[in-house]
Amino acid sequence: MIFQPAIIALLLGSLVVTIMVLAASGFGVQVLRRWNIGSGSELQVKLERQTYLISTLMGFACTIELVSLLLFVFNADRMASQFVGAMCAVGTLNANEFGFPALTLKLINFFLAGIWLILNYVDNKGYDYPLIKPKYLLLLVLAPLMATEFGLQLAYFLGLEADIITSCCGSIFGSDANTVASEMGSLPLSTSMIIFYSVMTLTLLAGVFFILTGKGGIVFAAMSGIGFVAAIQGVISFISIYIYEHPHHHCPFDVIQGGYNYIGYPLYIPLFSAALLGLGVGGLLPFRQKQSLSEVIPLVGRRFAIVSVAGFALFLTVATLSIVFSNLIMFEK
């Protein structure tokens, strides 16, 4: 394995976070079994105290998850020079079969952890801990996923040997390679753009409708998820080539590098936040019947939706401006 500080840091971080989440779930199980909000018994007081620990642990774990997601991608990009044929993070991730699964699971866990934080935030606003059961059930789902993520990362890093011939984004994302990724890239440009802009517009409309009327929250949440996928597809299939000003450079990771003015950040940060908050709205809606949350959820939901719509809009703006101001010409008039 490659003995690099960043890799050690990532593995260490992932291990610690996994242990934390497992410990938190352990407490969570106790809470689920014995929780009785009406009782003033010493056990109940003790359980309530434990929830503070769980919240703190989870808040911490989620922050680390987020940072390590960034670090993971950054590191993969940096290390590309050590692999023959790798020109960016994609090459590094392809060095063995665990690379992309690890990244995918990291993304999923990022969203799940974010949703947990949202549930926790809303739960704290209701005076009788109304979301305590769903919260800790989610935790029980998250724990094995985190452990798996650690396992995948470990397998990936242990299996990394420098000098391995790997494929670079040109060959995966170019239209002659036979992978899903290449199919995404090989749709005719105009079709890609039409799909992208349609989906994004629908998402924005769903959001605005929800903000104004308070209805259709589930639709908006679903559109947030779909919008996220469409956005990533958009980045890979055409936004990237305009940013790089190169018709075959589809890599979604290089945009976070300095060579491209770090445009990846104003692109991805709003997108991820928007998707997370949009999904969060969906996560909250099933609970709006609870008495203590009857006012809170519509209020919070609306607030989240506003930020989410703003995020998607910002992403769209940055992407479109990158295309408009690019020197690349793909369509001859």
Binding site: S81, Q82, V84
Partner: peptide, 9 residues
């Protein structure tokens, strides 16, 4: 690559 690896190591 080798130097990179070496120093990293």
């Amino acid at each position: 690559r080798t130097y990179d690896s070496l120093f990293d190591w």
